[in-house]
Amino acid sequence: MSELSTAAAVFISIGVAFDLIGGLGLIRLPDIYNRLQAATKCVTLGTCFILIGVLIQFGFTSIGVKAILCLAFILMTSPTAAHAISKGSHDFGIKLWEGSVVDKLAEDKSKE
């Protein structure tokens, strides 16, 4: 491989660090909704940073352009998947963590 440029190395390091924080959040946070928060946000942004690093390293060659496409697909699909999982688990009957403050959705569901 060619030598890794400094800017690319910085971007990829930030991305990998965010990925690791997302994984840690998946372990540490108490319930499914909070885990989704950490997991989707941190891991999506981390992977985006890795792809931006790859784009900086290779410039607008075939690899760089595919990194842009990959980035666009991840930014479109990841929040939709998170939304689907959270709605699915609420319908599945998963309660919020006991320290939670309010659950408007369950209140509105019980009214119907």
């Binding site: 924080i21 959040g25 950490a38 941190c42 919020l96 963590w97 309010v102």
Partner: peptide, 16 residues
């Protein structure tokens, strides 16, 4: 979110 995950006290107050 990274701050909340790394903080040992878990300063979260979730709700819908």
């Amino acid at each position: 979110v990274a701050y909340r995950v790394l903080n040992p006290g878990l300063p979260i107050k979730p709700g819908i």
